[in-house]
């Protein structure tokens, strides 16, 4: 009885320490349970709220599961053809230089069909932020192998595992991008635990601040899980990610100038 009384005393408006940011709409996300996209969307929305830039931010959503990002984050959006988000973001930023412009892309979008666009946008040093969700698979279309798929990893199109002689080795596109002179900040983060999510949020904020300072392109990779594509439970997928993805895609800043 004592405990019940306590809970009522705790749950009062003045004691609230965390609630959904108003930048995030009330729509129920279409993502699978435990999907990293939801957490990443929330962190972007929280940064936009904290910086007070809701009216001045334009996002470009990709092709992939996160194509519907515009249903969840209450800002202006465009939706690009597959892989072409950096090209649209370039045009948007040049037409509206005072706006905050970012792309939100998966690994199938950014590291495969959109490789040319991302490389050249980063090389030109467009003052945009790129949020790159790397879950080593094509989630939306049914779990096909992506350029980022790990060696030996089984997918719908590599049922016996990825092989070097047949498929080549995983593409560490973030490492390539850190070599380009147009980028000012290149980092690799994750959102499977609270510490990781808080670090990722700081990285996203830094990216937006860099674009205000016209420092060049900020590139934030979020190593993510796709539990449906990987055919695991959400918790198991996160554990698998820590064990197998992190050695290939180590977390931390690759570049910060």
């Amino acid at each position: 009885m004592h405990t019940t009384m306590d809970i009522k005393d705790i749950i009062k408006p003045e004691n609230k320490v965390y609630s959904k940011t108003p930048v995030l709409l009330d729509n129920v996300m279409h993502y699978c349970p435990g999907c990293s996209h939801g957490t990443a969307h929330k962190l972007v929305a929280e940064v936009i709220e904290e910086m007070g830039i809701q009216e001045n931010t334009i996002g470009v959503s990709p092709v992939g599961c996160s194509v519907f990002a515009y249903n969840y984050v209450d800002i202006d959006w465009q939706q690009a053809a597959h892989g072409r988000a950096p090209a649209l973001a370039t045009a948007t930023k040049r037409l509206y230089p005072d706006k905050y412009v970012f792309t939100y892309q998966g690994d199938g979008d950014l590291a495969s069909i959109g490789t040319a666009e991302i490389m050249h946008a980063c090389n030109r040093g467009e003052n945009i932020v790129v949020i790159f969700i790397n879950n080593a698979i094509y989630g939306m279309t049914g779990g096909q192998m992506a350029p980022t798929t790990l060696m030996g990893m089984k997918t719908a199109t590599s049922p016996y595992g990825r092989r070097e002689d047949l498929h080549g080795k995983p593409l560490r596109i973030t490492d390539l991008i850190s070599q380009l002179e147009g980028t000012c900040y290149v980092t690799r983060q994750s959102v499977q635990n609270a510490a990781g999510a808080r670090k990722t949020k700081r990285a996203i904020r830094k990216g937006f601040e860099n674009s205000a300072k016209k420092k060049g392109t900020s590139f934030i990779e979020i190593v993510s899980s796709c539990n449906s594509g990987w055919k695991m439970s959400p918790v198991k997928a996160n554990e698998w990610m820590v064990e197998n993805m992190f050695p290939s895609y180590p977390l931390g800043d690759l570049k910060d100038i």
Binding site: D9, I10, I11, K12, N15, K16, V17, Y18, S19, K20, T21, L24, V28, M29, Y31, P33, G34, C35, S36, H37, G38, T39, K42, V191, Q192, N193, A194, A197, R198
Partner: peptide
């Protein structure tokens, strides 16, 4: 303890946290 870890990692942002 109202640490907010659960709400921070919730992909569907369905947790509100209170602390005293």
């Amino acid at each position: 303890t109202g640490c907010t870890n659960c709400a921070t990692v919730c992909p569907d942002t369905c947790i509100t946290v209170y602390r005293v």
